[in-house]
């Protein structure tokens, strides 16, 4: 029983993290058919924004010193800002370009951000302690769960609900949904492409920042490579969920989190180091069975 509850919280919190990262990618893909591979670097950038620029092994808190009430909005704003700036500097000039060209540009942009971080902060992972008190376990349903896990699960739910509300109930949300379906028609109705795309990038960047805060608190490490790792999983989640489908991205994020936690628990000890090989085998099977994505209704036409 204890074990089951533990598994559930592990799966839900890891899945929540993946879901938020996947949402960030799906949002951009939905409005402009861009798979933004720089998304992982937005996450890394937000992590490093917390500490004083230096190549020392131990991180000295910079923004990270601020109280949570200030820190959280500040970091979300930084994430939104770097995403919006990158749209302005790079993707805006490629709007009419081939989606492949945009994707390659996003790789290049990610590379640039990563190398700037490497130059400023050095390549060694740094110990960083943000809100260490959140890692104290609490007893729940017979399991001992780090408080942070509960916060992650709650945060995911709040973020998903807030995003759904924004998309359903606000002017920007309506325009984003219309643009995601048919950008030209939306523009013929006076919907400003720049507003919609900037809005999507800002939301996506804020999601990256939320992921960054959670990952740093959880792992206690600032590592330039975090972005690449989570980006891979998030990208797979958006593909499995059906490119551009926001509910699909969330569902697939949770699914991948759950499956990797389950594999970790169920695989024999010798096989555990190869967990990801099993995970990605399942991914391939999923794609073979439903190339349009697991959560796209059968009647909907494929989006790519």
């Amino acid at each position: 029983m204890t074990n089951l509850a533990q598994l559930f919280f592990d799966a839900a919190s890891l899945g929540g993290l993946y879901a938020m990262a996947a949402l960030g990618i799906a949002l951009i893909f939905g409005v402009m058919n861009l798979v933004n591979f720089a998304h992982g670097e937005y996450i890394a950038f937000c992590v490093f924004a917390l500490i004083v620029p230096s190549t020392d092994a131990v991180a000295v808190m910079f923004l990270g010193k601020a109280p949570a009430l200030i820190l959280i909005p500040l970091v979300l704003g930084i994430g939104a800002l770097i995403a919006v700036l990158s749209e302005y500097a790079v993707f805006r000039h490629l709007r009419r370009a081939d989606p492949v060209a945009m994707m390659v540009a996003s790789f290049a942009l990610g590379f640039v951000i990563r190398n700037i971080l490497l130059a400023v902060y050095g390549g060694r992972p740094k110990a960083i302690s943000l809100w260490p008190e959140l890692n104290t376990p609490v007893e729940l349903a017979g399991a001992s769960v780090p408080l942070l896990q509960l916060i992650v699960i709650a945060t995911t739910l709040i973020v998903v609900a807030a995003l759904a509300l924004l998309l359903r109930k606000t002017r920007l949300g309506l325009e984003m949904r219309a643009a995601a379906e048919n950008f030209t028609m939306a523009r013929l109705l006076g919907v400003r492409a720049n507003v919609v795309i900037t809005g999507a990038f800002a939301l996506s960047g804020a999601l990256a920042a939320a992921v960054a805060l959670i990952m740093v608190t959880q792992s206690g490490v600032a590592d330039v490579r975090v972005g690449g790792q989570i980006m891979l999983v998030a990208f797979i989640a958006t593909v499995i969920g059906g490119m551009g489908s926001l509910p699909g991205a969330v569902a697939a994020g949770f699914l991948i989190g759950a499956v990797s936690v389950l594999l970790q628990a169920a695989l024999p000890l010798d096989a555990r180091p190869f967990r990801d090989a099993f995970l990605y085998t399942l991914v391939i099977v999923c794609l073979l069975l439903r190339p349009q994505g697991l959560f796209v209704p059968a009647s909907a036409k494929p989006r790519i």
Partner: peptide, 27 residues
């Protein structure tokens, strides 16, 4: 830009209607 032209007071019902199928009628 098309949106700028629309904002000047020109509106269009395109060939094939181009309805936003996932949005409600009112949306």
């Amino acid at each position: 830009q098309p949106e700028a032209i629309a904002r000047l007071g020109l509106s269009m019902v395109p060939e094939g209607r181009e309805i936003f199928g996932a949005l409600t009628v009112e949306e």
